[in-house]
Deep mutational scan, measured.
Amino acid sequence: LQLFIKTLTGKTSTVEMEPSDTIENLKAKIQDKEGIPPDQQRLIFAGKQLEDGRTLSDYNIQKESTLHLVL
C-alpha cells in the first residue's frame, strides 16, 4: 500500500509498504529515502505516536494514509 509521509517542512514523500510491515520497517524505508536515522523519527497517525514493534495493520493504516514525521 502507498503511504504519504509528511514532514514539518510540508514536504511529502511516498513509500510503498505492506499492511504486515512494522513501524520499524517503515522508519528504515524513510531512512533510505530521506537519510533520517530511525531513532530520530517519530511518526504520528490519527494523533497517536506509532511504536516500532507494531504493524501498520495494528494501527489500521490504510492505503494512501498520510503519516506525520516529527524529528
Rank of each mutant, 00 (worst) to 15 (best):
E64M: 13
T7K: 07
Y59H: 03
H68S: 07
L71E: 07
T14V: 14
A46G: 13
G47S: 04
T7W: 15
T66F: 07
D52H: 05
V15H: 05
G47N: 07
L8P: 14
K63G: 14
I61Q: 01
T12Y: 11
T14C: 08
R42C: 11
F45H: 06
T12S: 07
L50I: 04
P38R: 14
K11E: 10
E16Q: 11
L56P: 02
S57W: 07
I44M: 12
Q40P: 02
I61F: 06
I61P: 02
I30G: 02
T66S: 05
G53S: 11
K33C: 06
A46P: 01
R54S: 08
G10H: 05
T55G: 03
S13C: 12
D39N: 11
K11I: 11
T7R: 12
E16L: 14
P38I: 15
F45N: 02
V70H: 10
S13D: 05
Q62N: 09
P19S: 11
S13L: 15
D52P: 07
D32L: 13
D32W: 10
K11F: 11
G47K: 03
P38H: 11
D58E: 11
L56F: 07
V70T: 09
P19E: 09
D52F: 03
T66W: 09
G10S: 03
T9C: 13
S13H: 15
Q62W: 08
G53D: 12
M17Y: 12
Q31W: 15
R42W: 11
G10I: 03
E51I: 08
T12R: 06
T22L: 09
I23N: 00
Q41W: 08
P19R: 08
K11C: 08
T22G: 03
I5V: 07
L71N: 06
D39Y: 12
S57D: 08
L8A: 13
E34L: 15
I44V: 09
S20D: 12
P37K: 07
G53R: 09
L26P: 00
A46D: 14
S20L: 09
E24G: 13
T12I: 14
F45M: 05
R42K: 14
S13M: 15
K6A: 07
L69V: 06
T55Y: 07
A46Y: 09
P38G: 08
L1S: 04
